[in-house]
């Protein structure tokens, strides 16, 4: 199998690492070689964060470079735009329709770009969801990342059952049920 490249982008603190762990888990269980690369440390403090996930029969580098991403999972609109040039021609964007102002915008030094998703749609295949709203409906805003993952899952070859199994294995035991519900909310959206 040709190596598939996934990139998860978001704002430090949004929980991108959990998503990459679930992705890494499902791919390993399916027998692929998997490599993930994460960002720890200072950049995690509210900065723009990137996680790479690659899987296939044989994977060399653990990062994904510009022009190579099959699925770009963006937890925030501006971050989707920032990394859109990493997409392959036929790559897809899964975007959480949420806005988090970066400091230059909060301070009024720069403006938050308008109509990000609409503009991205002109060039890329994009699926978006207000995952935060869905997660709040379920009663826990913190599981929004599994709503986003649910949407992204439709663009990968694993079955719903495989996804639910790996979520069960990866998230803390007390939160299995709500995380599964969150995933399904995205998957069946």
């Amino acid at each position: 199998m040709v190596t598939k490249n996934i990139m998860i982008v978001g704002v430090g603190g949004q929980g991108t690492l959990l998503t990459s762990r679930i992705l890494g888990g499902i791919m390993t269980d399916a027998g692929y070689e998997v490599k993930l690369s994460e960002v720890h440390g200072m950049a995690q403090r509210g900065g723009s964060v990137v996680t790479y996930v690659r899987y296939g029969d044989k994977v060399a580098e653990p990062i994904v470079e510009e022009g190579q991403v099959d699925v770009l999972i963006a937890f925030e609109r501006l971050e989707a735009l920032r990394y859109a040039h990493f997409l392959k021609k036929d790559g897809v964007i899964i975007a959480n329709d949420q806005r988090i102002d970066p400091m230059p915008v909060v301070m009024g030094a720069q403006e938050y770009p308008k109509d990000i998703l609409e503009n991205l749609q002109k060039k890329h295949k994009i699926y978006s969801i207000d995952a935060m709203a869905k997660a709040k409906e379920l009663g826990n805003s913190r599981v929004f990342n599994n709503v986003v993952l649910g949407m992204a899952a439709k663009h990968m070859q694993f079955s719903k059952e495989e996804w639910l199994k790996i979520i069960e294995k990866t998230v803390p035991p007390k939160t299995i049920e709500i995380n599964k519900q969150a995933f399904l909310a995205g998957y069946e959206n």
Binding site: E66, G67, L78, H85, P102, P104, P113
Partner: peptide, 18 residues
Amino acid sequence: ELAIEEPADVPARPPILC
């Protein structure tokens, strides 16, 4: 020759105090 698109010109998101 790599066909790499220019990144979008967007506001930076530097790390901040929580």
